[in-house]
Simulated assay, not measured.
Amino acid sequence: MGKSKRNSPKPDSNRAQKLAERRAAQEQAAKTVTRPFEGLAAECDLVALREFVPSATATLKLSPNIAPERPVVLATVLPGAVAALVRAGDEPTGFVGVQVQFQSADPSADLAGSILWTQSAEPGESLAHATVDGVPGLADVLDPGAALDITVHQDFNWWVPEGVTPDPQVAATIEQANQAIMTSARLELGADAVGAAWWVDAGEKAHLRWVRPEDEDALMLALARVHAAGHLHLGEGSRFAGSFRTHGVLVPVFDLDPERHANEWVAGATEFGARLSAALANTEPMTSAERRSRDGLRSRQVTLR
């Protein structure tokens, strides 16, 4: 007798569809690049700009290997969440977005493809999604050792060039986006600071999200050591809220007193950064208190896909 097919789903059944969707999701996950911006000096800021910074821009330093034809500005999001556009003017400028409507399994390839597109596109053109097949690595398109000189905006008025009056539909879109934006700032913690610390006023609370480049396990151990010592905070008015994983890095998050401005947290964040660096350098075996802290911190960790 042949093998029973009783458990085989019919081709058009809901079960068959669910199995197909599950296989497709597994295949997509297998293709996803775990740490797309690894090796770039701007890695932590690229993660922040892509994941949670509302409105910011930075002129990119391109690699001479690609013979740049025009300047390129990195933006958190462009009108319509397109991948790129070329703004007309005396000196046409390319703009590339990292918060996009369509994306591949590799955000770094998306960004590299968008940058290359801006070098040959005509002024006034826009790109819905980047082509990633055959595109060189992002480290070959950008200067990998260059940090980002970021301008943080508290609105989206930069979507329209200065001196240009937008049509009513564009103006309404900008107004709607401006009403939803949350005030944000990047904390300038000095030349020795590690990662990228971003403050945001969310209304009832403010938050600090600190994108860190260290190995996740090593960073979690260091956070546990600091927590066990009672120093997992940025000073009075702050509280460690948890952490999330995204693009292969760990992002500790602190809840903050919303009455205090971003600049008022620089001293506390600097002191915390020094405590964390010392904990990262500690090679002693974990104490029982530190192990309990690590288990507790991991239970409050989430992953962003």
Rank of each mutant, 00 (worst) to 15 (best):
D201K: 03
L223D: 05
E271R: 12
Q176R: 12
T165P: 10
Q176E: 13
V249F: 06
W158R: 08
G268K: 03
D201C: 04
E284G: 03
L219W: 00
L276E: 09
L234T: 09
A228D: 04
V170G: 01
A180R: 09
L189D: 06
A229S: 14
F244T: 04
A202H: 04
E271K: 06
A193G: 07
D255I: 11
A177R: 08
A196V: 08
S277W: 07
D257I: 08
M220N: 08
L187A: 08
R186C: 09
G248V: 00
A180V: 04
A278R: 12
P168F: 11
Q179C: 06
S288L: 14
L276C: 02
A191G: 12
D155V: 02
F240Y: 06
M220Y: 13
W159Y: 02
E204Q: 02
A202Y: 07
A172V: 01
Q179S: 14
T165E: 12
L250K: 06
A180H: 11
A262E: 04
E216I: 13
T287S: 14
P213M: 03
D192S: 12
H207I: 08
T246C: 06
D192N: 02
H207P: 02
A229E: 14
A229Y: 12
H207K: 07
A281C: 09
T283Q: 13
V170M: 12
E259L: 11
P258R: 01
A218S: 15
P168G: 03
W198V: 11
A197Y: 04
H207M: 10
R245N: 13
P285I: 07
V200F: 03
R239W: 08
R239A: 14
L219D: 02
G242Y: 02
A206K: 00
N282Q: 12
L232G: 00
